[in-house]
Design a protein around this nucleic acid. Structure first.
Lengths: 261, 261
DNA sequence: CACCAACGAGAGCACCGATCTTGCTTCGTG
DNA sequence: CACGAAGCAAGATCGGTGCTCTCGTTGGTG
């Protein structure tokens, strides 16, 4: 929780423990990538590392703890992939950053379907994600918020829909908690508008849904080229946030809302 | 596959088989609702119906077959719920129909989280959904397409985004297969526009993502009121399709696209 | 050096899906 | 009506799982 500088594991035992722990996680990672989270058997990973199942319990108190370690590792890997992809486009404008971040989500997920299932699929029956996982889990959406914040700074505004009968809750209260979090983390210059905040959360839901549908086969017969489909989705999500590519329309990096109000 | 009229199970044996099969599915359904699909044990449902595990294999050749039966039952239940909700609003305009269909997706899913996990969660490791499941699985998206088609008929047009650099595939080809399906099923009067088709698929992905995030806890800390959050999402998805509630704006049931082109 | 904690191995528990054999009941038909 | 065939439930069995316990052994340290 606080500082854990890992002060040079002198003893051979501590060193062996560290490497063995990594070996176990690595073997579990391999099985996860191959068979998915539901088929991840503690005994199988024990065999893979040449141990007996009971010996693994010296390193992880339960199968759930091993799952948690994989969870944070995968969350961090995906988060880093998205962060790096976005950062690499920092010179190429908001649209390029948004598109790169979105594409990174799909790229990593398609390359790691088993890990994706672990992160975002059906939770394991009796398993409740511990606190350690929530911070790495937010890295992706933080990138999306940051790009949206810069777009907002550049003048991008999502179009607020007209009032629909029977839908009365104002946007600001729907995403009140999200706005508090964004403010507390300093992700937005000033106070994040409710409409933008909602659209980012919505975009994240859409990205996840699109990847999930593609990976789990809910789009067979409707979409052939997953990458092209995802690009089209990402472009529209960006446009819905008020973004426009550089050189399009009025020449600004971000176009203002498509209709005044 | 062909006609299977189930010609009045005369014999007591066939009747007992039918009721027992229903009992097994019912018990499995109860366990599914309580513990989720991963914890669905064939032995447990056998105990619930007062049988030995091996006896269940007289009725279902494997656990996967039982899962398939549950799958089609749940797909049909969700599909019927969405169809009924939409049909009930047929007199109240397109926006009301769209909102009702969207809400029905969430309502059923929140009421049946275990079943939702089975339908849309991580696929069971070695399980591949058989052909019997694809038709019931499409009922929800068919409703969405039908409402979008009627909205298109009334003049609703989604806004096509500006061209983004690096994204070149035209919309029509991205959703070509979906358009073929829609045309073959006669869901759209005339040929469905690519932009509308894509937006419907996108909306379905968003609805699924929003429900999934809420059910699996990916929104804790960001959204408190799941129903209000979902309403806000559904409204924007409808607006992105070009819909507007009756009486809003120019008074039409569906407003034309918010910006010319 | 002597002690103790960490360690790996093995046996064992309860549970799982799936298969096979063994009798018993019921059905349809000669 | 009777008898064979088919359907049926039960039990044993097999390999697998997560997890706990008890052993020797080994490594680090007072």
């Amino acid at each position: 929780m606080t500082d854990r500088p890992a002060p040079a594991p002198r003893t051979a035992r501590a060193l062996a423990r560290e490497t063995l722990t990594r070996d176990i996680v690595g073997a579990a990672r391999a099985r996860l990538a191959q068979d998915g989270p539901a088929a991840l058997s503690l005994r199988a990973v024990a065999r893979d590392v040449g141990m007996v199942s009971s010996a693994v319990y010296r390193y992880f108190p339960s199968r759930d703890a091993l799952l948690t370690a994989l969870l944070v590792e995968c969350y961090d890997e995906l988060g880093a992939a998205v962060e790096d992809a976005e950062a690499a486009q920092r010179e190429h404008g908001l649209a390029a950053r948004w598109l790169a971040a979105c594409r990174a989500v799909r790229t990593w997920s398609v390359a790691h379907p088993g890990e994706f299932s672990l992160l975002y699929g059906t939770p394991v029956p009796g398993y409740a994600a511990p606190r350690d996982t929530v911070v790495p889990a937010t890295r992706v959406v933080r990138v999306l918020v940051r790009v949206a914040a810069d777009a907002h700074d550049a003048g991008a505004r999502p179009v607020a829909p007209a009032a629909w009968p029977g839908v009365d809750a104002p946007v600001e209260t729907v995403v009140a908690r999200a706005r508090e979090y964004v403010a507390a983390e300093g992700l937005f210059p000033g106070r994040a508008p409710g409409e933008t905040t909602l659209r980012v959360l919505m975009a994240w839901s859409t990205l996840f849904g699109a990847v999930s549908f593609e990976l789990f086969g809910h789009l067979v017969g409707s979409v052939d080229d997953g990458a092209a489909w995802f690009d089209a989705v990402a472009v529209r999500l960006g446009a819905d946030l008020g973004m426009a590519p550089a050189g399009a329309g009025d020449g600004g990096d971000a176009a203002p809302g498509r209709r005044g109000r």
